[in-house]
């Protein structure tokens, strides 16, 4: 099998000694036009991968900022089909490989086969299912991989070594390393144990390690250089979109502000 778009991207970065920058975006917040606009803009700015959150009514792993964005998107009745259609419309564009972050509640109800086909047709390269832990998700992960989509698994600071081994059996693309025990959301400091955990993981797998939860600044990205191959930023981006619900006239300004932030993060992660 050819390397997946995600694997290719990490390979290219590795060859030039760079880390991947992966911002997160809630599909449909404030609307799908904005989601598409940002994807195209970020593609131009050299973002490596984008994590697309599918809004869900009861997200347990997410903190207040991302949950609020899900609530905003759902208030506008955003559906899975609309998200797939919108992403599919970008197929000719030069956008980064997309990683879908989707609750198993949604996938199961939509129909597993149906969802995987839809995701593939929409151009999604990887799937993160945050409420279906790797060791439980074996058959589902196979199904995802057989469709040519990477099955991205999460490892938490609470994950013991024995579980890591089991989780790795279902993992491809990259390993999502949760920096802190807790939900998504901006934190000032990254925990000291993180380096140790990353070192440990590095010795267990050849997959690239991407660190998420709590990262919001380029300095934090710099700290991870040499220890991880990618950095994920969610809440710090999503909270910039909050204001658009009340004041849609600020769209251009928000796109520009996010552009500046993204540039800074790309620069920090791409320093070799």
């Amino acid at each position: 099998m050819n390397p997946s778009p995600i694997a290719q991207r990490f390979d290219q970065l590795k060859a030039s000694g760079k880390m991947a920058f992966m911002p997160f975006l809630t599909a449909g917040d404030p609307d799908l036009e904005m989601t598409k606009e940002l994807l195209v803009d970020w593609g131009r700015r050299g973002v490596d991968l984008v994590e697309i959150g599918f809004p869900y009514s009861d997200p347990i792993a997410d903190g207040a900022v991302i949950q609020a964005s899900y609530t905003r998107a759902l208030a506008k009745k955003i559906t899975i089909d609309q998200i797939f259609t919108a992403l599919g419309e970008l197929s000719g564009e030069n956008i980064p490989p997309l990683v879908g972050m989707v609750s198993y509640s949604l996938i199961f109800r939509y129909g597993t086969d149906h969802f995987i086909t839809g995701a593939k047709n929409a151009g999604i390269s990887g799937l993160i299912v945050p409420d279906f832990p790797g060791d439980e998700a074996g058959a589902f992960a196979k199904q995802v991989q057989n469709a040519g989509i990477d099955s991205i698994q999460l490892v938490a600071p609470t994950t013991p070594a024995g579980r890591v081994q089991k989780i790795l059996q279902s993992a491809s693309g990259f390993l999502y390393c949760i920096s802190v025990a807790g939900t998504t959301g901006v934190r000032q400091e990254l925990p000291e144990e993180l380096s140790q955990q990353l070192e440990q993981l590095q010795s267990q797998t050849a997959l690239p390690l991407a660190v998420g939860f709590g990262i919001s600044r380029s300095e934090q990205a710099a700290v991870l250089r040499g220890k991880a191959q990618g950095v994920i930023v969610g809440s710090a981006i999503v909270r910039q979109l909050e204001c658009l619900d009340e004041d849609p006239t600020r769209r251009a300004a928000v796109v520009a502000e996010l552009g500046r932030f993204v540039d800074e993060m790309v620069q920090a992660t791409h320093q070799s």
């Binding site: 832990p133 439980e136 698994q153 938490a156």
Partner: peptide, 12 residues
């Protein structure tokens, strides 16, 4: 039944 929770809770 089963467990459909974030990895962070699995150990607990």
């Amino acid at each position: 039944g089963r467990r459909f929770v974030p990895e962070t809770l699995m150990q607990a």
